[in-house]
Design a protein around this nucleic acid. Structure first.
Length: 266
DNA sequence: GCTGCATGATGAA
DNA sequence: TCATCCTGCAGCA
């Protein structure tokens, strides 16, 4: 379930759990055998997330880059870890427990120049805000004519937003997802950026995407919202909009499905 | 058991 | 714009 919040959360939890420990490493699937052999017996020093990318800092300045893609998953076990599945690309274990990684798009030892190249093509990350980020987003919007919902999936424009958040953010600011990016007013771009910061931070904390305002469904905390009530538009085609009752619509945009409320989003 | 689908991204055309 | 790669699981026979 990997949008940016998932990766930042994984980085935080894995860092807390495994950093500073010597680990044994292998690749049950066999597709990361050389990398695993290089890491085996070394200390994991840190874990960092940027957008949807993870960087593992190992002893002796070795960095491993992981990108979960659509299917990648981590499983961690305190003890009594099960046998790894066929698809377990990377496994490590040590005193704090065991971690299995399956299905990643990327899992590679990465040299520092390659990492630099990668970071250069990532846009601002709402979960790692730096000065000037909103301005960078503003100019990306002003320069591009592609639909706003498509722009929001471009990791060079903003990193970490995925198909759920992009649909929800468009709903929250009330913009039709097909609106050309350069026709979105700057105040609305600013609101998208601020919403991304707030909502993805919530997602990072509670481990799932919740964009519905808790008070709107009669609870106090995001984590108390039921999974059926947590989103406004994503995968809700045909159901009534939570705000106005109109039927939520969906369509394919650049090969990804986007959902929206035809009344609330103009 | 099989099919289709999924919160992603890339490279060829 | 399209095919392709990654894996697991729900939904269906």
């Amino acid at each position: 379930m990997p949008e940016g919040h998932t990766l930042h959360r994984a980085a935080r939890l894995q860092r807390r759990r495994f950093a500073g420990h010597q680990l044994q490493v292998d690749s049950p699937q066999g597709r990361f055998t050389d990398g695993a052999a290089l890491l085996d017996g070394r200390v994991l020093e840190g874990v960092e997330a940027v957008g949807k990318h993870l960087f593992y800092r190992w002893e002796d300045a070795i960095t491993v880059h992981v990108h979960l893609g659509l299917f990648g998953k981590f499983r961690t076990f305190t003890r009594d870890a099960p046998e790894p599945t066929q698809g377990t690309r990377l496994r490590w274990w040590g005193e704090p427990g065991t971690l299995h990684l399956s299905g990643p798009t990327a899992c590679d030892v990465m040299e520092s120049d390659a990492e630099e190249q990668l970071l250069l093509r990532l846009g601002p990350d709402p979960l790692a805000v730096r000065p000037g980020d909103e301005q960078r987003l503003q100019s990306a919007f002003a320069r591009r004519r592609i639909p706003v919902a498509q722009l929001l999936l471009d990791q060079a424009v903003v990193s970490g937003i995925g198909n759920v958040y992009r649909a929800e953010f468009c709903f929250l600011v009330g913009v039709d997802p097909f609106t050309p990016a350069n026709e979105v007013p700057p105040e609305m771009v600013r609101d998208i950026w601020r919403l991304a910061i707030d909502h993805m931070r919530v997602g990072e904390r509670i481990g799932r995407i919740v964009t519905v305002d808790p008070t709107e469904v009669g609870v106090r905390l995001h984590r108390e919202i039921s999974s059926r009530e947590r989103l406004y538009v994503y995968k809700r085609q045909g159901l009534g909009c939570r705000r106005c009752g109109s039927a939520i619509r969906h369509a394919l945009l650049a090969n990804r499905t986007v959902w929206w409320c035809p009344t609330c989003q103009r």
